[in-house]
Simulated assay, not measured.
Amino acid sequence: MNDPPVNNDRGRARYDGIAAWYDGIAQGSMVESEQALTDLLGPGTGLCLDLGCGTGLYFDTIRRTGRTPIGVDVSSDQLGLARQRSAFVVQGDASRLPFANDTFQTAAAIWISTDVDDFGAVGREVARTLQPGGLFVLFGVHPCFNGPCVESREDGARVVHPTYRVSARHHIARWWGRGGIRERVGGMWHIPLGELLNAIIDAGLRIAYVAEPREDPIPAVLALRAYKDTTCHQGSGPRQR
């Protein structure tokens, strides 16, 4: 069987053309992450926006918490598969959401921080479309120990290279395997931990809980829970004395 093509067409969504292949390889990560994500979300009701829902692999996880998932993604190919799992999906950009203010009780960003070019804009859109007091959960790549700056070694150790502070799309890293997801979608966006957390705070979301799920000796996943808090001002960096 031939490998699926690499998507080098800048006019298309990065996952168009490889949606079925990606759905297959992502199943294992979904199973491994399901319990931790369920715990992070906790029980709830109402509409849950699944940002960058891809093929809809996490719809059932969201449903089991009592919520109704509403998926949004830019890839028409991925949404074609997502519609087999739910009728409630919309094509759109997470940084320019096609929804009205105060629409959702919950929003979830699952494995998307490395795929969006402006996480700050995504955070602002989350805050805009969440109802006051609404819950936002982030579950994805740990910026410190998983990414283009991190080289995994056979003994389980990881080497963090100086490019950790380069917040940008990294198109290639010499330790990435051939034919993997990063090669097929043209790399990944890396955002350092401090910048990621400040993007959430600056959007007007109050971080209430941070975790490093799973039992890996060196965590590969970062998770957090935040709330839209209209009683506090948006963050603006360090205060001047």
Results as ranks from 00 to 15, higher is better:
residue 6 V to M: 05
residue 9 D to G: 04
residue 10 R to M: 08
residue 12 R to C: 08
residue 13 A to F: 00
residue 14 R to S: 12
residue 14 R to W: 10
residue 14 R to Y: 04
residue 17 G to C: 07
residue 22 Y to G: 00
residue 23 D to R: 00
residue 24 G to H: 03
residue 29 S to R: 09
residue 30 M to K: 13
residue 34 E to L: 13
residue 37 L to P: 05
residue 39 D to F: 07
residue 40 L to H: 04
residue 46 G to I: 05
residue 46 G to P: 00
residue 46 G to D: 12
residue 47 L to N: 08
residue 49 L to S: 09
residue 51 L to I: 11
residue 54 G to P: 00
residue 56 G to N: 05
residue 56 G to W: 00
residue 59 F to N: 06
residue 60 D to T: 09
residue 60 D to M: 07
residue 62 I to C: 06
residue 63 R to V: 02
residue 63 R to W: 06
residue 66 G to A: 12
residue 68 T to G: 12
residue 68 T to M: 15
residue 74 V to R: 14
residue 80 G to F: 09
residue 81 L to K: 02
residue 81 L to Y: 08
residue 82 A to P: 01
residue 82 A to Q: 02
residue 86 S to C: 04
residue 87 A to P: 13
residue 91 Q to C: 08
residue 93 D to Q: 05
residue 95 S to E: 15
residue 97 L to N: 05
residue 99 F to V: 15
residue 99 F to N: 06
residue 103 T to S: 14
residue 104 F to R: 04
residue 104 F to E: 07
residue 106 T to F: 06
residue 108 A to T: 09
residue 111 W to K: 09
residue 113 S to Q: 03
residue 113 S to N: 08
residue 116 V to I: 15
residue 117 D to F: 10
residue 120 G to L: 10
residue 121 A to L: 08
residue 125 E to R: 07
residue 126 V to W: 06
residue 127 A to Y: 02
residue 134 G to W: 04
residue 138 L to S: 04
residue 139 F to C: 01
residue 141 V to S: 12
residue 142 H to A: 07
residue 144 C to W: 03
residue 144 C to G: 08
residue 146 N to I: 01
residue 148 P to Q: 11
residue 148 P to E: 08
residue 152 S to G: 13
residue 156 G to H: 02
residue 160 V to M: 02
residue 161 H to T: 15
residue 165 R to L: 08
residue 165 R to V: 12
residue 166 V to L: 11
residue 166 V to R: 11
residue 171 H to P: 04
residue 173 A to K: 08
residue 173 A to F: 00
residue 173 A to Q: 09
residue 175 W to S: 10
residue 176 W to N: 04
residue 176 W to T: 03
residue 180 G to Y: 07
residue 180 G to C: 03
residue 183 E to F: 12
residue 185 V to Y: 02
residue 188 M to K: 00
residue 190 H to R: 06
residue 191 I to T: 15
residue 191 I to V: 14
residue 191 I to Q: 11
residue 193 L to E: 01
residue 196 L to K: 03
residue 196 L to W: 01
residue 199 A to Y: 04
residue 199 A to V: 07
residue 200 I to H: 06
residue 200 I to P: 03
residue 204 G to W: 01
residue 204 G to T: 04
residue 206 R to G: 11
residue 207 I to Q: 07
residue 207 I to K: 09
residue 207 I to V: 15
residue 210 V to F: 10
residue 211 A to Y: 00
residue 211 A to P: 00
residue 212 E to Y: 15
residue 217 P to G: 11
residue 220 A to N: 10
residue 221 V to G: 01
residue 221 V to S: 05
residue 222 L to V: 13
residue 222 L to P: 10
residue 226 A to Y: 02
residue 227 Y to Q: 10
residue 227 Y to D: 10
residue 228 K to L: 03
residue 229 D to C: 07
residue 229 D to R: 02
residue 230 T to K: 04
residue 230 T to I: 06
residue 231 T to S: 15
residue 232 C to P: 00
residue 235 G to C: 11
residue 235 G to N: 07
residue 237 G to W: 01
residue 238 P to V: 12
residue 239 R to H: 10
residue 239 R to D: 11
residue 241 R to A: 14
